[in-house]
Computed example of a mutant assay.
Amino acid sequence: MVISHFLRWIDTARVSERAAGAAALARAYVSRELPFEDRCEAEAALTFLLDDPSTKVRYALAEALAMHRLAPLQIIHALASDQDEIADLVLKRSPLFTDGDLIDRVAMGAESVQLSIAGRALVSKSVSAAIAEVGSAEACLILLRNDGADVASLSFRRMAERFGAMPRLREAMLADRRLPVDCRHVLLVKLSAALKDAPLVVALMGRARGERVMREACVRASLTLIDRTRPDEHAALVEHLRLAGELTTAFIVRMVAHGKIDFFASVLGVLAGREAVRVQALLAGGRDLALSALFRGAGLPESAHGVILRALGIWREVANGRRVAGAQEVSWLMLRELNACPGQSGPAERLAELAGLIRAIHLEVLRENARGHALAIAAA
């Protein structure tokens, strides 16, 4: 009887009154205060209100029902397809949507729908995967900033592939501690590509020099990335670098010169197909003959064996406390190994390119150390 009066009254009530009445009826419905028969009638009345011409009435309905598990399912789904401000309330808050419902709406809905779903308090891995695969850049950005979103490694990789060239997305991904290490490298490469093609860089440096500078910067960034990579992620980063074609002899020599010996062990383990523990033991105390055999198994050219063995010997002494040295001293002694230091007769012709690489490494380290010294003096 009360519901019948409500339905007759609603035809003549003002918008503000209808909105208040809709909210009151919805709250009464979800609070279980109504007897069963009245609840059935109330559900019919609430469904009827979906056709109200005023968005204020439908918004009031959505606001009252959005967070309740007892809300009528057909009303929640209808409100989720209403105007953006109404749909946003329901899509962000309602616990009645299954992952399947949300994935379908991400795949078929407008960007506003994707934004709402990406902003839910809890977003499962499967829903995050759907947003990463087909969602807009803005939806992916909201997902990355959502602490309640469970994002799988594969979803990070997909977003890096799709939107790594976009500064806001790239910054959001790099700031996320969950980002897999191989994705960080992908983003660094994309950043390098974007910079070398920038009109200002091309105008200032020329395309050829710009590409060389950015390539060198990318290599240095990869070395920094190694320092920030947990040991249990080394294998993944090695595999990524290998597949990307960046695990070159030059990169390995640079890595050893800078003392990234733990990562070097992971590289050798992957390339030579050897157990990591065995490789680490060889690097820590193996003889040169055994190490050279390991290097050959990993595909390293014979020409690089001598300088790598020299660097390993120095880093062993540093690790054992018998010497104090850094990349500057190690790269200098690697040059001496090649007979390429000032005052020496010069490297063999077949080693000239390797000597040029190590000389460039040594000069870079000298410059970095001088810069650090200057900054320390200025800060004193």
Results as ranks from 00 to 15, higher is better:
A360T: 08
L141D: 07
L271P: 07
E37D: 13
V90R: 04
Q74K: 10
H77G: 02
C40K: 15
V330K: 01
H362M: 01
L366Y: 14
L241T: 00
T98G: 14
A304M: 07
A348P: 07
K196T: 08
E317I: 08
A340Q: 00
G148R: 03
I103S: 00
D176P: 07
A355G: 09
L49A: 05
A304Q: 04
L237V: 00
D104W: 12
R170S: 04
A44Y: 08
R228H: 09
S31N: 07
G109W: 07
L335W: 00
G343F: 01
L237A: 04
V213I: 12
L309E: 05
A45L: 06
F156R: 01
D52Y: 12
S136A: 05
A45W: 02
I252W: 03
R18N: 00
V270F: 13
A244K: 06
W9I: 04
A327C: 01
R207C: 11
A130V: 02
R58D: 05
A87Q: 03
R274H: 12
G286K: 05
A348K: 15
A298N: 04
G100H: 01
R168G: 06
K56G: 14
G119M: 11
V365T: 12
A236Y: 05
A26S: 08
G343C: 04
A172T: 09
H185K: 11
R359H: 12
Q74S: 08
L351F: 03
L96N: 10
R157Q: 03
L225R: 08
L122Q: 11
W315R: 03
V151F: 02
T98F: 08
S136N: 05
M1S: 11
E349A: 13
D197E: 14
D182Q: 06
M214E: 03
L375F: 11
V2C: 13
A293P: 12
A265N: 08
Y59A: 07
R93G: 06
M67A: 14
V201H: 07
S192I: 10
I261G: 01
G326C: 02
L70R: 09
A378Q: 13
G372A: 15
C40A: 12
M1F: 15
S303W: 09
D101F: 05
H240E: 08
G21M: 03
R336I: 00
E275C: 09
R177A: 10
L73R: 14
A355F: 02
L309P: 07
E85D: 07
P180G: 00
A160C: 08
L268C: 15
A208H: 14
L289F: 13
V213Y: 07
P231T: 01
P72F: 00
R184N: 06
R93A: 13
D262V: 14
A360G: 09
D52G: 03
L200Q: 11
L46D: 00
D262G: 15
V134M: 10
A250S: 13
A304G: 07
R157S: 09
P199H: 08
A23G: 06
K92H: 09
A13H: 08
P347V: 01
L241Y: 13
R145D: 04
A160K: 01
F156V: 09
G245M: 02
G245C: 02
L191Y: 12
G206Y: 04
